[in-house]
Computed example of a mutant assay.
Amino acid sequence: MISTLELRHIIECGFLPLSCSCTMNVDGSLMIKVTEPSSGQVELLVTGVSSRPLTSSRAIANLIGELRGEMIASKTSFHSNESRIQSG
């Protein structure tokens, strides 16, 4: 079993060089907030992430990979929509 402190540390380090804050809610779920350090812009905010399945380094790595993928997809979608607006 991974301690809460260790779990938070692993998740927060998984988003470097971005700044990540991971907090444990009273119900055991996580809130993960990733920001761009220079601008303070929020890149990702996820709430209600269940900590129950995060019992191994592989499970934590998979979560970080999924969240990084969501960040990339949302940036790609935003820039795609932005270019359509400008050209339209």
Results as ranks from 00 to 15, higher is better:
Leu16Glu: 14
Ser74Gly: 10
His9Pro: 05
Ala73Asn: 08
Pro37Ser: 06
Gln41Asp: 07
Leu63Ser: 04
Ser39Arg: 04
Met71Ile: 07
Ala73Ser: 06
Ile2Tyr: 00
Ile10Thr: 08
Gly48Thr: 02
Lys33Asn: 06
Ser77Tyr: 04
Glu70Ile: 06
Glu43Lys: 07
His79Arg: 11
Lys75Asn: 13
Cys20Tyr: 01
Ala73Phe: 02
Ala59Arg: 08
Lys33Glu: 09
Ala73Cys: 05
Lys75Ile: 09
Glu36Cys: 13
Ser29Ile: 10
Val49Ser: 00
Val49Phe: 01
Glu43Asn: 09
Cys20Thr: 03
Pro17Thr: 11
Val46Pro: 03
Met31Glu: 09
Gly69Gln: 12
Gly69Phe: 14
Ser87Trp: 09
Val49Leu: 00
Met71Ala: 05
Ser21His: 07
Glu6Lys: 03
Val49Gly: 00
Thr47Gln: 15
Glu36Gly: 04
Leu54Trp: 00
Pro37Gln: 00
Ala61Leu: 15
His79Ala: 11
Leu5Trp: 04
Ser38Lys: 13
Thr4Trp: 14
Met31Lys: 09
His9Gln: 12
Cys13Thr: 14
Ser50Phe: 02
Gln41Met: 04
Met24Cys: 13
Met71Cys: 03
Ser83Arg: 07
Gly88Met: 12
Ile64Trp: 04
Ile2Gln: 01
Leu18Gln: 15
Pro37Gly: 03
